[in-house]
Computed example of a mutant assay.
Amino acid sequence: MRLLPILAALALVVPIVAGPAPAQAQQQPADAYPSRPVRLVIPYPPGGSTDQLARALQQPLADFLKQPVVVENKAGAGGAIGTDMVAKAPPDGYTILFANSGPNAILPLLRKTPYDTARDLRSISTVAFMPMILAVPADSAAKDLRSFLELAKANGAVELRVRGKRLHVPFGGEYYLNMVSGLKLAHVPYGGAAPMMTALAGGQLEAAFVTGMDGTPMVQGGRIRYPGIGTPKRSSILPTVPAIGEQVPGFSTVVWFGIMAPAGVPEHVAARLHAAVVHAVGRPEVQRMFIDRNVEPRTSTPEELDRLIREESVQWKEVITRGGIKLD
């Protein structure tokens, strides 16, 4: 009979001991991410250089994560619409952004955006760096970088490039070159890369800053030439092309691409995504695809990407202010 109070007490204790177990079971272990498809948002239309680079990573990312990676193009407002969509997505790692310089470092300097990159997005890693390249028609009198600069000083050579959606391009061209070199190149906007490249190859333009993805076919076809590349020193992707920074100290115009996630993603999710990006960029087929298009594959730590964005913002703010640049 003396056992009854003890047994009754034990019966009351059991639920208290067992109670926390269901709550613990609901916590997702670090290795459970991802358990469903991951959405990779590209803030530009299909077919462009950003889209091509992002899609090259799609299958390697899926292989590493062991879940499908679904690409979604969310274009508009200079990349702001897609960027804002990711910034406002649940911070669970299932919606990530293929980010670049334009909407993350330049656009916020020109107009108010519905997101704040530093506050609303978390850097995962860079993916690639794409230098802007100075191009001239094949029969141009500017046979090399030195003669181009001399002609520009003497004649005010016209430099033309896309503006609007691809925000990094005009700033990395004549505005910046004018600022650091004292030249007075004129900016004449084009509505897209294709008509501009056609005009350049046809000799209607004196010079342009182009991407390797746009220019390579015409260089190979002997229709345009590259007097210089927009890097401080010679680039491994075009080692025979002089760096503009060699003759114009301080000049550098390189577009970065990277992966970002909504701020607040758990540490283990961010780490898993970083490992996936490093794996994907390191794949031989991805390396070849990037290098064939004059794009340098390069990953980074999240902190390095954060620092890059801050440094770019300082650089382009000066260019925008001194150039009096405004969006149409």
Rank of each mutant, 00 (worst) to 15 (best):
Y44T: 02
D51H: 10
V41K: 05
P68D: 13
P29H: 06
L12R: 07
K88E: 11
P90V: 08
T83G: 07
Y94D: 01
V69G: 02
G48E: 03
V70K: 06
P43F: 03
V17C: 10
P108T: 08
G78R: 03
K88V: 14
G78F: 13
P45F: 00
F64L: 07
Q24F: 13
L107G: 00
P114Q: 09
G82K: 05
G47E: 03
K66C: 00
I96Y: 01
G47D: 01
R111S: 06
G102Q: 00
G47Y: 02
Y33D: 09
A54F: 07
G48V: 07
P46T: 01
A99E: 13
S49P: 01
Q58S: 14
S123D: 13
V13L: 15
G93V: 05
L97Y: 02
V86I: 12
A18I: 10
V69F: 08
D84N: 15
G47F: 07
R39D: 10
Y44C: 00
L109P: 04
D92R: 11
G19C: 08
Q24I: 13
P114N: 08
V38W: 04
V38F: 02
Y94E: 06
D63Y: 04
V17S: 00
R55L: 15
V14W: 04
D92M: 14
L109W: 07
R39N: 10
M85T: 14
R111C: 01
L97K: 03
L65N: 00
S123F: 13
Y33G: 07
K88L: 15
T95G: 01
A56G: 01
R36V: 08
R119P: 11
V71Y: 02
